[in-house]
């Protein structure tokens, strides 16, 4: 029979929500206004594109076709990546661990060779020499692990004949470091904030409801019967 009381109170609250426009505003419009207001204040809306620092170790031995140069130019042209060259992997790794760059791209020695084999027979994957571009990422930077690999993958695909399908490329991008790339949806990003807002509003509204009920004697009316208090 307790369900009957809970349902009665729920029904009452639903009616209140529909019949009192101020409640509707508090529930639906106020959080939206807040999210936009805080988003504009702290989210850097209109602040332009972020730029990631990427170190490149060019081990390409190609002479006739300098594919690595095309690749580097293409990376710089994205305007999202700021490319810096390093002599060897160790120096680049040091820079990564010091936090001055967020990713290291290692161009393998057979990069140009692979590119040339692809150009010679673009439609025959069996004739290609496959090259693996290695990528090291800053484990601490959530943005870098999310944003940098797709950009580099896209550039690699683009230089290998503008194909959007990575499977048709002789280049493979391998994340060499043991960073587990976790996909994060917009909901994951928004959920904590929304829950916080929802909780704050819920607490505010319940407190307001209690204050009003106390003021007009409703709490006493409830309290004078034990069953009412249990339902509350």
């Amino acid at each position: 029979m307790k369900l009957q009381r809970v349902l009665a109170l729920t029904k009452k609250e639903m009616k209140k929500t529909v019949r009192e426009p101020a409640v509707l505003f508090m529930i639906f419009l106020f959080p939206v206004v807040f999210v936009f207001a805080f988003g504009a204040s702290f989210g850097g809306v209109g602040g332009g594109q972020p730029v990631y620092q990427v170190g490149v170790v060019n081990m390409d031995e190609g002479n006739s076709v300098n594919a690595s140069q095309i690749f580097l130019t293409a990376l710089s042209d994205t305007k999202i990546l700021n490319v810096q060259s390093y002599v060897d992997n160790q120096t680049a790794q040091n820079a990564l661990s010091q936090g001055s760059i967020q990713a290291v791209v290692i161009i393998p020695s057979d990069f140009s060779q692979s590119f040339a084999s692809y150009q010679a027979a673009p439609n025959d994957p069996n004739a290609w020499t496959n090259a693996t571009v290695s990528l090291y990422l800053d484990k601490g930077s959530l943005v870098a692990t999310q944003a940098v690999p797709p950009i580099i993958q896209q550039v690699l695909t683009a230089i290998a004949g503008q194909s959007q399908q990575a499977s048709l490329s002789p280049f493979r991008l391998e994340t060499a470091s043991l960073v587990e790339v976790k996909t994060q949806s917009a909901l994951d990003f928004m959920a904590p904030g929304m829950f916080t807002f929802a909780s704050i509003f819920l607490i505010m509204m319940v407190a307001q409801s209690f204050a009003t009920d106390r003021e007009n004697g409703m709490i006493n009316a409830y309290a004078s019967h034990r069953r009412h208090r249990q339902s509350l």
């Binding site: 009452k12 009616k15 209140k16 019949r19 009192e20 007009n216 004697g217 409703m218 006493n220 009316a221 004078s224 019967h225």
Partner: peptide, 11 residues
């Protein structure tokens, strides 16, 4: 109990 205050829900 009928309290002194009018304890009803106006809406």
């Amino acid at each position: 109990v009928c309290p002194q205050e009018t304890a009803i829900y106006p809406y």
